[in-house]
């Protein structure tokens, strides 16, 4: 790490695409190219910076584990319902193979559990973009519903980080029904006077946007996150309309009045902790069990 301190942010290597040629002795896997500004970033620097580009502030898509590591106090996360599975209920062609492939990146499109955030006991749901683009199937909806029910029973706040391409077609109508089920569970949690914070991450679309993503008491989003019901391609294709600049980014949706704040990844945990405290949640003396 110290070896490479001379390529820290703000030197000329960061601004050129031929950065690698200037340091030929650094192996390939130590570099990650920012998909937005094309800067070659030292992978270790990127990781230290919450997987946010040090040059252009692009927020890289991260795994559920990385997300949990960012938000939960260290080693406090205890997963719930991790083994829940459903399989190919409608016998949809090709779905079994898709599920099998998706399971390389995790068991399902959401991980739910209990953790401490700034010492405060919180139920945390983190969607998994790697699993069929975070699409919402029966297991996804069931895990989220159970997480809210558990939070309601135990008077706990919920933080949900969304990333989703929308419904899971291979589960047909059962996928659609997850929108109603999760919304019902959110409503009961809300009626019990408990706090629900959503964190929209790129991309949050379709059936997830039209259900629990938009139902938080407080809705936060990472910078430059796509937040949409109908995605930009759908609109362009079906309506043949040219889209306004920055359409459906979190900044755009903020300006239209549908989210509370755009918060960069390095400030997320502190922001959520403050919100939990403002709502009267106290630090837990014993560890979450």
């Amino acid at each position: 790490m110290d070896l490479f301190s001379f390529v820290k942010p703000k030197n000329e290597l960061e601004t050129t695409t031929d950065a690698k040629q200037n340091v030929p002795f650094v192996p390939d896997e130590m570099w990650t190219k920012c998909p937005k500004c094309n800067t070659m970033l030292l992978t270790t620097d990127l990781e230290e910076n919450f997987n946010v580009c040090t040059h252009c502030d692009h927020h890289f898509r991260i795994s559920t584990k990385q997300r949990i590591d960012i938000l939960a106090d260290s080693d406090s996360f205890v997963e719930r319902d991790s083994e829940l599975s459903g399989g190919n209920i409608l016998d949809f062609p090709g779905y079994d193979q898709k599920l099998e492939k998706a399971r390389e990146s995790g068991k399902e499109s959401v991980v739910c559990g209990e953790c401490l955030i700034g010492g405060i006991k919180t139920v945390l749901c983190v969607m998994n973009a790697g699993f069929m683009m975070g699409s919402m199937g029966t297991v996804t909806g069931e895990k989220i519903t159970r997480a809210f029910e558990y939070a309601t029973e135990n008077s706990l706040p919920v933080v949900a980080c969304t990333v989703s391409g929308g419904a899971r077609m291979q589960e047909g109508i059962l996928s659609l029904m997850q929108m109603a089920k999760t919304s019902g569970a959110v409503k009961r949690h809300s009626d019990a006077g408990l706090l629900y914070i959503t964190v929209l991450t790129d991309p949050t679309t379709g059936g997830v946007t039209a259900s629990f993503a938009m139902e938080g008491d407080i809705i936060l989003a990472e910078p430059n996150t796509l937040v949409a019901f109908a995605g930009p391609r759908v609109i362009e294709q079906t309506m043949r309309q040219k889209l306004p600049k920055d359409f459906q980014t979190s900044e755009f949706v903020l300006q239209k009045g549908f989210i509370d704040a755009v918060v960069s990844r390095d400030k997320l945990k502190a922001t959520i902790t403050r919100l939990l405290k403002i709502h009267g949640y106290k630090e837990n003396k014993e560890a979450a069990q």
Binding site: M179, G184, D191, A210, S211, F212, M214, F229, F247, G257
Partner: peptide
């Protein structure tokens, strides 16, 4: 389906549907 247009997105199509789901349940 719900209208997939620019105006509909600007005025919160997702939020409008989500709110109905929540409110209808109770």
């Amino acid at each position: 389906g719900a209208y997939p247009g620019i105006g509909a997105e600007e005025r919160g199509q997702g939020q409008a549907i989500a709110e109905n789901l929540m409110e209808m349940m109770t």
